[in-house]
């Protein structure tokens, strides 16, 4: 399939596709990080994760309009406000859902899966009723438009760079939160032994709620980032949920570094293949390879060997 391209062209293709893949990678990472916390640390399958992401996207859409209508002078900075609000909105909804639904279903992972699928259907319908069935997009501020030319054949778009920086920043923050903070220690303690954690004085209920909220909040931020590169519809989230779960499982649930590495592998493979094959075949082959590897190595790429 490489026939007909010169070496220089191939380098450029790989670089450009690789960069396009990096944007996909960023969205995967942001989506998957929230899921990795919820699934990896709490053992909860949140099939509505995509809808939490889309909530963030809709919040961003609303904020961009609010800025355009009332504060056009500050429009360049709306994105930062939107991101914070998206985090809060998705996080708050997440905590509500944890209180109303999830907390009754710990220890029944398969049932959580079905219940959150039901939740996702409800959220999709609500989005459709409120925002309409058509996809909406945001106006990207001027400073994020355009691209930086690296060589005469390779250009990198600024919004992509921005999304990537965001993904990396949040990854670092999550890592610090989970593995360097007292709260993260509590979350991990609960994951390993809920009863014991409660016995030593950890407020498991509050920690669970906060963990779930933060996971969903991160999905909201992912939604914000998502508006930079795609348009938002009621079912946009559902398109990503399977990929995201595969990213988390492939990386080895519970490992943040694993999640990032697996998001990188999957997005790069898909993006580079996309240039040579049709988009759908690229996705089929990528997913097949991931599923195949998971069949050979079900614990994912970065799981530890433990004494059982």
């Amino acid at each position: 399939m490489f026939a007909g391209y010169s070496a220089g062209e191939l380098t450029a293709i790989f670089a450009m596709q690789g960069f396009a893949g990096l944007i996909l990678f960023s969205v995967f990472v942001l989506m998957a990080l929230g899921l990795a916390i919820i699934f990896g640390q709490m053992g909860v399958i949140n099939m509505a994760h995509g809808e939490f992401m889309i909530l963030g996207a809709y919040v961003t859409y609303l904020v961009s309009h609010a800025f355009a209508d009332y504060m056009p002078a500050l429009f360049s900075f709306y994105f930062f406000v939107a991101m914070a609000l998206a985090f809060l909105a998705s996080g708050a909804l997440g905590m509500l859902v944890e209180w109303g639904l999830i907390r009754h279903l710990y220890r029944r992972p398969l049932d959580t899966l079905l219940a959150t699928w039901g939740l996702s259907l409800i959220l999709q319908q609500i989005y459709r009723s409120v925002f309409g069935a058509r996809e909406v997009g945001v106006t990207i501020p001027d400073w994020m438009m355009g691209s930086l030319p690296l060589t005469d054949m390779i250009e990198v778009p600024i919004n992509g760079l921005f999304v990537m920086a965001l993904a990396l920043g949040i990854s670092v923050a999550i890592y610090l939160l989970m593995f360097r903070s007292r709260w993260g220690q509590q979350v991990r303690a609960i994951n390993q032994n809920r009863v014991m954690a409660g016995a030593v004085g950890i407020n498991t209920e509050r920690t669970d709620r906060l963990t779930f909220g933060i996971g969903c909040g991160i999905a909201g931020v992912a939604g914000s980032a998502f508006t930079m590169i795609g348009s938002t519809g009621p079912t946009s989230g559902q398109l990503y949920i399977v990929d995201t779960f595969l990213v988390v499982v492939f990386g080895g649930a519970g490992s943040i570094l694993g999640t990032i590495a697996s998001a990188f592998t999957i997005s790069q493979a898909q993006s580079v293949l996309e240039f040579f094959l049709s988009g759908s075949m690229a996705k089929v082959i990528t997913l097949l390879v991931v599923v195949g590897i998971l069949m050979l190595r079900p614990q994912g790429l970065f799981a530890l060997k433990l004494r059982k």
Partner: peptide, 25 residues
């Protein structure tokens, strides 16, 4: 390989997704 529970659910779901994309593509 003793894969079961939620992993099995996720993988079978992924297979459903793959087959759909393949058929459409």
């Amino acid at each position: 390989r003793r894969v079961g529970g939620v992993y099995f659910a996720i993988i079978t779901q992924a297979i459903a997704a793959i087959l759909t994309i393949l058929i459409i593509g």
